[in-house]
Structures are given as C-alpha cells and as structure tokens.
Design a protein around this nucleic acid. Structure first.
Length: 585
DNA sequence: CTGGTTATTAAGGCG
DNA sequence: CGCCTTCCATAACCAG
C-alpha cells in the first residue's frame, strides 16, 4: 500500500515536473488555479497546501500519537537453549560474503554462473575460473556437495550420532551426542510407552463461550467454560517458555502428541531439526534442547504419527525422512533424484528436473507414514505409497506455479492444493489415480477452485473436514465451509478475515493451522506482524479472533505455529526466524 | 506476453 | 548503536 502510494507520488511529481518544464519556457507556473512567476513560490504554495491538508485532517496529530503509543519496548532476547560455542567456530577458512559494490571494490568481469543453496559459482574475467563461496558461516572451502542435492548422506541409514554430528559445530558441545542419545532413550521412548489417556476424556468437549469473541476479554467471570478460561490462561510471559532450538530460521514446527510431556520440534533453513524437552532440568547446559541435522535444505514440514513413535520430516533437498524413536534413526524413506544413470534403481529416479525444482511440501495422508503427498516448486503433486511396488503412485502437474501445501480431507479422496498461481484447487484423488494407471484418460481437472488475490501460503482441511482454511498474500485468511462438497467455482469464503500476511523474504510465511483434535469448536492459530509480537488464536466457526498471546517469551515474529493435539489442555507453540521456539500453555 | 528489475520485510552479527 | 547481510519470496512495474 505504502509502495503504491509512494510510486503514485513519484509519478505525480514527475508529471508535474514535465509540465513545469513546459512552463519554464513561458516563465510562469500554474498551481491550483494560481499563476506564479517564481518557481520557488509555486513550490512553497504547494507545500503549504500539503501541510494544511495534513493539519486539517488531523493526520499529523494522529501520526504522532500513534508513534507515541506504538513505541515498542525493547524486548530482551532469551538466552535459553542452543548456545554458540565460539571456540568451535571454524577460523581461517571462513569466507563471509561481502558486498564489493558497497566497499568500493572495482569489479573485474565477474559473473555468477550458478547459485544454489547459498553456494555460488563465479566466473572471474577471461580466465573463467570457477570459485565457490560458502555463504553459511560454518561452510568451509570444500565445495561440491558430496551427495545429491546437498543431502547429508546417500540415503542409507542415519543414526542419532551422525545426525547430531552433521549439525553446525558452532552449536554443539562435547557431550551433545551422549545427551541426545539419552534424550531419545530416557525421555522420548519412555513418554511413548505410557498409554495416552487422551481418548478416554475426549467425550467431554470444551465449548466456546459466546461472549469471548467480542474483542477485549472483560467478561471473565461470566464465562466459566473450559475453553475460554484456558484461552485466558495461555501465557507466554515466562522466560522458561522460550528457547533457541535450531540455529537458523524456522520453517516448520510440531509438538509431540504425548499428553505427559511437552516436546517441541522445529526444523530450520539448513536442515537442522531441534527437539526441546520443555520440562528438562533447568540446570542442564542446553535447557533440554537437542540438535540434529538430517537434511541438507529447509525442513518444510514436521509431523508426528498418532502414537508419537515416528516423525516425518520433509525438506527442500527432496528427501523425506522418518525419525523412528525406537529404531533411533532418521532414515530416508523417499528422495527425488535426477535422471543420472547412478540413480536408476531409486524410486525417486528421474523426478528432479534440476534448475528450480524442489520439494516444497510433503505430508502424511491421515497420519499414515506409508502414504505421503508431496508438492513441488514446479506445480506438481506426487503421491508416494511406500507399500506399493512403484512407490510413486502418481505424479501430476496441478499448477503452472509452485504449490505451497497439500491437504487431504478426512474423507480420504478430496485433496486441496494451494500455491503461487493464486488458486485453491480441490481434486478427487481417485480420478487422478485412475488417470495415472490408465494413461488413456485426458488431463485431470480440479473438482472446484477458489481464486485468491495473492499467492496462497497454505490451505488445510480442519480435522473434522468441515472447513478449509487458507492463508494468502492478499492479506486474507479465508475459511470455506464444506468445500469438499462444492464443484466448479467457489465464489465466496464463509469467513474472510483481514490479516497482514506480508512477511517479506526474511521471515517464513504465515500458515494458519488447525487444532488437530476434533472438538465442537474448531480453533486455529496463526502468527502475526503485530507489535508486541503475537500469536493469534481464532474460532473457525465464527471466523473471529479469540485471543492474541503476547508476552516476554515472544520477542520476534512467530512465523510458524501449531497446537498440541491434546483436547484437554490448550498448548500452542510457535517458531521464529531466529530459531527460537515459544510454547504457550 | 515475458524476462528483468526493484521494493518490501525482520533480525542477527559485527565493528 | 548503526550499518550490513540475509537471499529456494512476491508483487508490481517496465522495457523489449
């Protein structure tokens, strides 16, 4: 908006200037019906008009009062969690990129030949010498990725020990491997051995009190219902609610389903996955944080299975892994490869199209780790069924542009895709599947579509299947009711909530996400650009904001959020672009 | 119509 | 504290 206005101003100015140039010849200047012989006089008159306008409309006062009120208190960044070990920082061979232009260095014939994953190949002058520069602080001069797409290994099994060791050494300690091993054995495994009590008490659902959607939450005593009091209680005020869990920007978050322990997981830009046992002994040096690096690129999705024994991780590097806490491995279950001869035996052979092709998103179909849906930057959607012989049961182009998320309706056959083509599309998977097996049928088309005014960051079906929730760059959060029953063009969302989704390129995009439990009220959580930094909880039925969580623990924009699966206690987590995780409970 | 350019965004690191 | 870098984003705009 500001940009547009600025551009407009520039345009107006420049057009005025052109007129002025004309006027110079006649040596008179026109403004507002008056003629000026002196250019400066005309400019002054114009400035006075503008100033009067600002004063008379009260804009100046409003601006200064807003500025005073909005003045953000400097937040103290938490020191909990991962701590950098300066001694371990690689010293001399560290190459940091510096701007030659800004430091006034004359450039020879420089050209960037190729850039990928932060690695540059630069041609210098006539020699065409290829230089690679590691952009990441810990990357040394060793260059060519050892494995396809910079993956951490060739797809063979990945032990806890190695997963820890692949992490950026700057954030590791001497005992990191042992403490991670201990965490898996003593915390994760034991938590999972206790039978969940969730299902038993699910029959007493908490209900939404109708009076809490009215903005400020004053009627505390009138609403005694479980949910509203829980919403009120949610707090992010304590320093113990935040920790640095991964070194870099968080792309994905997940909470372990155990009702006994709150274990938060976050995936970052470089392929790290950090676990945080929020109840860990505060005397421990890492505050219960354990770092692994099973991937070579952004970890775009993390998802636990129902029992909490396995966790799927998906990455831009094209690899999908399952962290199995009993096997104690981060094993690759599927990975894309190009059509090089050496990969012929791999199930993902020939999928990778090289330049600008990557796996954007992957998720389980109904928490089943054998059935996975993937979306790619090229607009294709794949279904990977590990039980089938071919593994890839379809690979179909659904869009001309990148698809950001896929979501399967609980009915098992309606798939929602959303992406940069500004379209939300619903597909009948059964038809796509049959098209893939019998190659005769024509191009498959979506059952229904909804057009958005900007790229769509995400679209998810609610756990009950009633709603479809999408977050788009037209600054809207849209809720569609019974979208899976629609056909053709969906004209209007049931609720359309204005929401600033303009995160820019340094922050992960917002994706509003549902509470995973099926209850009467369907809640969703989303990050926000608001000051002070906020996590927002909405009521999906009403499309209304129920609670904005703020507090000392939230010192950055929380880009990615999720709920704990417990239907008894509300627990929300969020991840920021500095690798910090907030848990509000 | 399309390929190229630029503004925008937040936060950590470094001097 | 102030400046610089980050960079697998998007959108709007502009030139060819």
């Amino acid at each position: 908006m500001r940009t547009r206005r600025q551009n407009l101003n520039i345009k107006q100015e420049s057009s005025v200037k052109l007129e002025d140039v004309e006027d110079v010849k006649q040596e008179s200047f026109h403004f507002n019906g008056n003629v000026f012989t002196d250019y400066q006089e005309m400019v002054d008159a114009k400035r006075k008009r503008n100033q009067d306008m600002l004063v008379s409309t009260g804009l100046l006062d409003a601006c200064s009062s807003i500025r005073n009120n909005v003045k953000v208190e400097a937040t103290v960044t938490s020191n909990r969690g991962l701590k950098a070990d300066r001694k371990r920082k690689p010293e001399s061979n560290l190459l940091r990129r510096k701007s030659s232009r800004l430091s006034g260095v004359k450039t020879p014939m420089l050209s960037v030949e190729h850039e990928s994953g932060g690695r540059f190949k630069i041609n210098i002058g006539d020699e065409l010498k290829v230089v690679e520069i590691g952009s990441s602080a810990y990357m040394t001069e060793e260059t060519e990725p050892q494995y396809f797409n910079n993956r951490v290994n060739d797809g063979t099994e990945l032990t806890i020990k190695n997963a820890v060791k692949f992490s950026n050494p700057k954030w590791l300690k001497n005992n990191s491997v042992e403490s991670a091993q201990k965490f898996v054995n003593e915390v994760l495994q034991q938590t999972c051995n206790i039978t969940p009590v969730l299902s038993k008490e699910r029959c007493s659902p908490i209900t939404v009190a109708m009076d809490i959607g009215k903005g400020n939450r004053k009627g505390k005593d009138t609403s005694k219902s479980g949910l509203s009091s829980q919403l009120d209680c949610l707090s992010a005020d304590s320093e113990t609610f935040v920790a640095k869990v991964v070194p870099e920007r968080i792309f994905s978050v997940a909470l372990h389903p155990s009702p006994h322990k709150i274990i938060a997981v976050a995936g970052d830009k470089r392929g790290h996955i950090g676990f945080w046992d929020t109840a860990a002994d505060s005397t421990s040096s890492t505050d219960g944080v354990h770092l692994f690096k099973p991937h070579g690129g952004c970890v775009t999705h993390l998802e636990w299975n129902k029992s909490g024994t396995k966790m799927l991780s998906a990455s831009y590097d094209g690899g999908l892994r399952i962290f199995d806490l009993h096997k104690e491995k981060f094993n690759e279950i599927f990975a894309t490869y190009d059509d090089s001869e050496e990969f012929k035996a791999k199930p993902g052979y020939g999928l990778d199209q090289g330049y600008r092709y990557w796996v954007q998103y992957a998720c389980m179909a109904d928490k089943n780790e054998d059935s996975l849906y993937l979306s790619t930057s090229a607009g294709s959607v794949l279904h990977v069924d590990l039980r089938s012989k071919a593994k890839v049961t379809f690979n179909e182009v659904f869009s001309n542009k990148k698809i950001n998320t896929v979501s399967l309706h609980p009915n098992g056959h309606t798939l929602a895709t959303a992406g940069n083509e500004r379209m939300l599309q619903l597909w009948d998977i059964r038809k796509v599947q049959s098209k893939f097996t019998k190659k005769s049928t024509p191009k498959c088309s979506p059952v229904s579509t909804q057009i958005a005014t900007g790229s769509i960051n995400s679209a998810f079906f609610s756990p009950s299947g009633k709603y479809l929730l999408s977050t788009n760059l037209g600054d809207k959060i849209d809720i569609l009711s019974d979208a899976h029953l629609e056909s053709g063009h969906i004209k209007k969302p049931t609720h359309s909530i204005r929401h600033d989704n303009h995160t820019g390129r340094w922050l992960s995009t917002f994706m509003a996400r549902w509470h995973p439990s099926i209850t009467n009220e369907e809640l969703f959580v989303v990050g926000s650009m608001q000051h002070p930094r906020t996590m927002e909880i909405f009521d999906g039925n009403q499309g209304k904001l129920l609670r904005g969580i703020q507090g000392n623990a939230i010192s950055n924009v929380v880009s990615r959020c999720c709920f704990h699966s417990s239907s008894e206690k509300l627990i929300v987590m969020g991840g920021t672009s500095s690798g910090r995780v907030v848990v509000a409970q």
